[in-house]
Design a protein around this nucleic acid. Structure first.
Length: 210
DNA sequence: ACATTAAGTGATT
DNA sequence: AATCACTTAATGT
């Protein structure tokens, strides 16, 4: 396999495992905004994220979306893990937030590796732990924070995963991610701008306070 | 020049 | 916080 992969996982796994992943894994790329996993998909392999960021969404019966959390380099998808264990379908949608590179591993291997590689076991358990934390954070955000705080957190998160304080996004797109209306977003963004936390442009927003 | 899309705003619920 | 109705500004054809 290639060097970008090693760089990403060097510090996580022993050499043997790295080599095995290199042998078995299949590298895939996704362009920005493409859907990587759709709700209802059966999952036959699990992804390891090498570069880029992935947005994890939930959707209700009307097709309205809500962003749960982001995945970054070195992360894997906990939904995939639980899908691989059981035989259930994906209950979330994964969309490439930026251009994405990842390695697909057949689900058969990830089960056997749990026994053979200590570092792998650690990684999987740790991933579950992290995802769980992020999920709780997402619940807190939705349940306890007001819309303006949610919005600012959303902007900061987005700036974080893209490593760019200038976000290429319209008010309408934001309202869809946060499951609210465009007018509300426009108003709150205006307020944030007056508080000098952000700067507004057409089709983009610069985050000033990170 | 005209149509389309993004964004701003007051009023109402 | 959501919705309506309307305005203004930017951009594409």
């Amino acid at each position: 396999m290639n060097t970008s992969f090693k760089e990403s996982f060097d510090y996580l796994f022993e050499e043997e495992l790295i080599n095995e992943i290199g042998r078995i894994g299949v590298k895939k790329s996704f362009k920005q905004d493409t859907i990587i996993i759709e709700i209802g998909d059966y999952i036959k392999s699990m992804p390891l994220l090498i570069s880029g960021a992935i947005k994890i969404l939930r959707e209700d019966e009307n097709g309205d979306e809500l962003v749960l959390y982001y995945l970054e380099k070195g992360d894997t998808c906990a939904m995939t893990l639980s899908c691989c264990m059981g035989q259930s379908k994906s209950k979330i949608r994964a969309v490439a937030e930026t251009d994405v590179e990842l390695i697909m591993l057949p689900k058969e291997n990830m089960a056997t590796w749990l026994g053979t590689y200590k570092t792998w076991q650690n990684y999987i358990l740790q991933s579950y732990h992290n995802r769980m934390e992020e999920l709780l954070e997402a619940v807190d955000t939705i349940a306890f924070l007001k819309m303006d705080e949610r919005l600012f957190k959303y902007l900061k998160d987005k700036a974080m995963v893209t490593h760019n304080d200038v976000l290429q996004v319209t008010h309408k797109q934001i309202s869809e991610d946060l499951h609210t209306s465009r007018v509300v977003i426009s108003r709150l963004l205006k307020k944030l701008e007056n508080e000098h936390k952000i700067k507004l442009f057409r089709n983009s927003i610069k985050v000033l306070e990170l």
